[in-house]
Design a protein around this nucleic acid. Structure first.
Lengths: 184, 184
DNA sequence: TTGATCGCTTACTACTGAGTCAGTATATTT
DNA sequence: AAATATACTGACTCAGTAGTAAGCGATCAA
């Protein structure tokens, strides 16, 4: 029983990560929800407004994720993070970061800033979680925590993209490769 | 002094990897080239035809690349491969694989098959080059050559995407991380 | 030298895109 | 009970989209 605005956000996010920003229209949202085009414009006057909401939605989701795993052991946190991407892959979608990066030059400066904030938050969380795991001995790092964080992030978000082309086996292989690298 | 058709292909490729498939139009191609919209349609009747040409263009480019580095030492080949991505990053573009993956569900089956062929060619080249380097001792592998190939590919193509958001320093860090991992 | 083919231009069509605005039923507040 | 805000609908606008068809000059082959 979520509000129309929330339903729009969820659907827009699915479309964004399913077909890409420029491949979906306001009627792709209004039709399935049984509302009129203008109703979408009522909540989100312009498409950039909608895009910003998608970023905010993911920022919130990620904050809730970090709160949920807070207190868990570092390697376990990383596994939860990777499993989250498994669910993205299974649903045939891709990671927001990749979706926005591809259409980057079609985005307004405000969206770009929002995305920069979100992406840095993810990188910072990954970095500090890797450090945490190195301290308690559960995680092995061969490079700086920051470099490894970037490596893991690019591996897993690109895996959702690559597996669209070459199949889900490749996603599984990449995920396993990450785990192999950071465990003893 | 290249033909109109070639100029269209090159420009379409730049647009595809610069703004995304659905963010550029036939007039984005015709205007800069000083030709009419219909001239583009003459060479490429539909947009999917244009997309297929882009894939073919990259298939040819990659074949020429492998021929150029053929005979070189394996680690050197990998470095050339990574440097190729550095030039993509510097020009503000992203890798074709990521560009098509994002818009995957907006692509025809034929384009998808072409892209699958191209992507598998790249993965196979990477895999065999890594094996080659392991044999002669220049490359260190911690996992199977196939898994490492997928890991390297996703790292580097996602690095072109991520660096759009968080800056070129991250591209450099990811590239260095790959090199650190496979060298002694 | 005639005729066909190539590489375009001119001039459209049909449609879809984002976005607007006046109006309306349904609460909510005063 | 009246005024106001909320969440829409109906009915548009207008720019831009892919795509088409007819024509035309230059080149090339018979």
């Amino acid at each position: 029983m979520s509000s129309t605005k929330d339903q729009i956000t969820v659907l827009a996010d699915e479309l964004m990560r399913g077909k890409g920003y420029n491949a979906f229209s306001y009627s792709d949202i209004s039709k399935p929800l049984g509302i009129k085009n203008a109703a979408v414009h009522y909540h989100f006057p312009t498409k950039p407004d909608l895009a910003r909401e998608i970023v905010a939605y993911h920022s919130d989701s990620f904050t809730r994720f970090t709160e949920r795993v807070e207190g868990k052991e570092a390697l376990s946190k990383i596994k939860f993070f990777l499993n989250f991407y498994t669910s993205i892959q299974l649903s045939g979608r891709i990671c927001v970061i990749g979706a926005f990066a591809t259409d980057w030059n079609a985005m307004t400066e405000e969206i770009q800033q929002d995305m920069q904030g979100f992406t840095n938050t993810v990188i910072e969380w990954l970095t500090s979680t890797l450090k945490e795991g190195e301290s308690n001995g559960s995680i092995k790092l061969s490079d700086t925590a920051d470099s490894e964080a970037l490596s893991i992030l690019t591996n897993i978000f690109a895996a959702t993209q690559l597996s669209r082309i070459t199949g889900s086996d490749h996603f599984a292989a990449i995920k396993q490769n990450i785990l192999n690298r950071i465990t003893h």
